[in-house]
Design a protein around this nucleic acid. Structure first.
Length: 305
DNA sequence: AAGACGAAAGTGGTTGA
DNA sequence: TCAACAACTTTCGTCTT
């Protein structure tokens, strides 16, 4: 689980006294107590198991993820500026108390937020399941979603739209090679909406995503075409060459991947037609032709159709 | 008949003024 | 916000095997 290590100052009091509590998976300000990160928890099962103490060590059920807003710690902080003995508290700690109260207020408001997150996570689960994406992806989607809410990006948009957009963003970020079309298909949300919202989230949260490379898509397409590992290796080799000659810039990675697969299937003696490849890669035969013509010309590859 | 080819016109996203 | 632009798609007639 990663988090933003570039943040060195507390956003509330600008203190640099940032503390990490590994066991609780929290990162917080040592001076005013503002939580900066609470999603560092390992929700997996305990790997040691001792039958003799008769307890199931698995951490199944209600794992402490980012879903918890107040973690059930709803103790009140009294509004009077006095300590337990009734003395006036110093101005310095008064401002501390003020911040603590404010955060506590916020955490109460999190009741609706919590419902929102619960719903969002169930969507994320559903989508990830359909796209065969694992737990780390769902966790990351949840983290990003939570951050979008903090930035008020959820307002005026449906939860589904925002979750789908977060998923697409995470897909880019983690290079999971799911296409916009696939995500649009399982979420039933238009490409346009997903990419627009995704772009906005990226900008607001300052998340940088790596460029999607053709080779990311190779194995997925090859799988649908039931190709041998031999062909896949060949395709990946061609990807590297194309990359080196900067032939992938500005071209859609799926188009390049499709063309490379067309070449690889033919040179490696497991021919597929342009039609077949176009079908699984969702690009047109025309695009495959254009790309593969360029590729064989520049990379000097010879083969008979 | 199937597959490949390429021209031409149309579409949607990006970019820069 | 708008126009220019490149990549991509759709469509369709032709060529090759």
């Amino acid at each position: 689980m990663s988090f933003d290590t570039t943040v060195v100052k507390c956003a509330e009091c600008l203190s640099r006294n940032i503390t990490v509590d590994e066991s609780r998976g929290e990162r917080f300000c040592g001076d005013c107590g503002v939580l900066m990160e609470i999603d560092m928890i390992d929700p997996g099962a305990e790997w040691r198991y001792f039958p003799e103490n008769g307890k199931d060590q698995s951490r199944v059920g209600a794992p402490a993820t980012m879903l918890y807003s107040d973690k059930g710690l709803s103790t009140d902080i009294h509004w009077a500026d006095r300590d337990y003995a009734g003395r006036k508290i110093s101005p310095k700690s008064r401002s501390q108390f003020y911040r603590m109260r404010r955060w506590q207020q916020r955490s109460r408001m999190h009741k609706t937020l919590q419902r929102n997150l619960q719903l969002a996570l169930s969507y994320a689960d559903k989508y990830c399941q359909k796209l065969e994406l694992g737990r780390p992806v769902r966790e990351r989607v949840a983290t990003v979603y939570r951050k979008t809410l903090e930035q008020n990006l959820g307002r005026g948009r449906s939860i589904e739209n925002v979750v789908a957009s977060c998923l697409y963003l995470v897909n880019q970020e983690m290079q999971l090679a799911r296409t916009l079309d696939e995500i649009s298909m399982v979420t039933k949300i238009s490409n346009k909406d997903i990419s627009r919202i995704q772009r906005e989230i990226k900008r607001k949260l300052k998340i940088r995503t790596p460029l999607q490379k053709p080779e990311d898509y190779i194995s997925g397409f090859a799988n649908k075409l039931e190709l041998d590992q031999k062909v896949i290796n060949e395709a990946i080799r061609i990807c590297a060459l194309a990359e080196k000659r900067e032939m992938t810039h500005g071209k859609s990675p799926t188009g390049v991947a499709a063309a490379i697969l067309y070449i690889a299937t033919n040179t490696a003696g497991q021919s597929r037609t342009q039609r077949e490849i176009a079908e699984v890669s969702n690009v047109t035969e025309v695009t495959i032709r254009n790309r593969y013509k360029e590729l064989v010309r520049v990379l000097d590859i010879h083969f008979e159709v």
